[in-house]
Design a protein around this nucleic acid. Structure first.
Lengths: 178, 178
DNA sequence: CTGATACCCTACCTTCGAGGTAGGTTTTTG
DNA sequence: CAAAAACCTACCTCGAAGGTAGGGTATCAG
């Protein structure tokens, strides 16, 4: 497993917010009950989402949370990023304050780390997929007038419904029973 | 961080093996010293690689490990898979014994998990990148006659050497004081 | 044959962060 | 005002990541 439940739960919260009418706030307790998730824990997560500017809050009675933007304008990358922090497949490939990718082992400028290429690639493919997937893509096909509901990935289809089962890696005998 | 050091160290070991002449075994102690990694720990990792059929071993004096196949025929997916087990971005999207993707929350067949699409996509993009990257791709460009050394990723350049300005996706929550 | 080398195996140990609780404070509404 | 809800800080716990330790076993050099 690679992402923590922070990302998992947080994405669920965002989906629940997106499903509802955008003009009135949704109390967190409602979502917690609907998805059977611990309320107190969700409060931590949604705090991060708020600091990241992804949701807005209304305090007091009849308060709750709302999406700060339209679901079509929120990418999963933003959500995951807000919840998990910097997206990196391994410690080595996380970024310094200046945005560059650092590797502690790379003190010696002569020596180039051969594995860096791999992890950079992996990181990039994850980030791209997360960026290409918008919050609206996870909503049940609710045809908004004038906008096709499945723009999905930009360049390539990010997730073919049939993964074709290569070698042993995926081997879903029942592929993605959606 | 998403993969453990198992994958990180294990990939390093494989790279070291690939760098050397394929006909004589490399003792693990040599690699441990070269990469400054704990020998006893590497032994655990390489045991997994052996069970997965990725390396072979010669016991006794002048023994060591060798690649079981050519570096061009070993994908990073196999390596990571051997070390980390099933590749899954979150618990939900891992496979059951029968190979199907399970989600505990999906007991109710009516209810479709809206977030499953996301994690399936992410999983697939990771797996594809790992499959497309061969062990030979991580070797310093050592031109084998008759084979181009950079087939790289399938469709798109997977890793830009300069991350440019990644909006805010970079922002480290914990600044990684390396 | 004997020692050295190196793989191989099982058991253990320690730290740390994920995942969650708890309890209080503040703001808003009816 | 009382209830509802966000907000905040502190704490707790448990399992796995990341090792260590120590022996056993095969192989080679001399």
């Amino acid at each position: 497993m690679m992402f923590s439940t922070k990302a998992e739960y947080g994405v669920r919260v965002m989906v629940e917010l997106a499903r509802r009418r955008a003009d009135q706030p949704v109390p967190l307790a409602e979502i917690a009950e609907h998805d059977q998730l611990p309320l107190a824990y969700l409060e931590h997560l949604v705090a991060r989402l708020r600091k990241a500017g992804l949701v807005e809050s209304r305090r007091g009675a009849r308060g709750g949370y709302l999406l700060a933007r339209s679901a079509r304008e929120i990418s999963m990358a933003e959500i995951v990023q807000a919840l998990e922090g910097s997206i990196a497949p391994i410690e080595c490939i996380s970024e310094a304050a200046d945005g560059s990718l650092v590797c502690a082992r790379e003190a010696d400028p002569h020596h180039v780390c051969p594995t860096k290429l791999l992890w950079t690639r992996v990181r990039y493919s994850i980030v791209r997929t997360l960026q290409d997937t918008k919050l609206s893509d996870l909503l049940p096909t609710e045809s908004k007038p004038g906008s096709p509901s499945k723009p999905a990935a930009s360049s390539k289809p990010a997730a073919p419904s049939k993964p074709a089962a290569p070698s042993k890696l995926a081997a879903p005998s029942k592929p993605v029973a959606a």
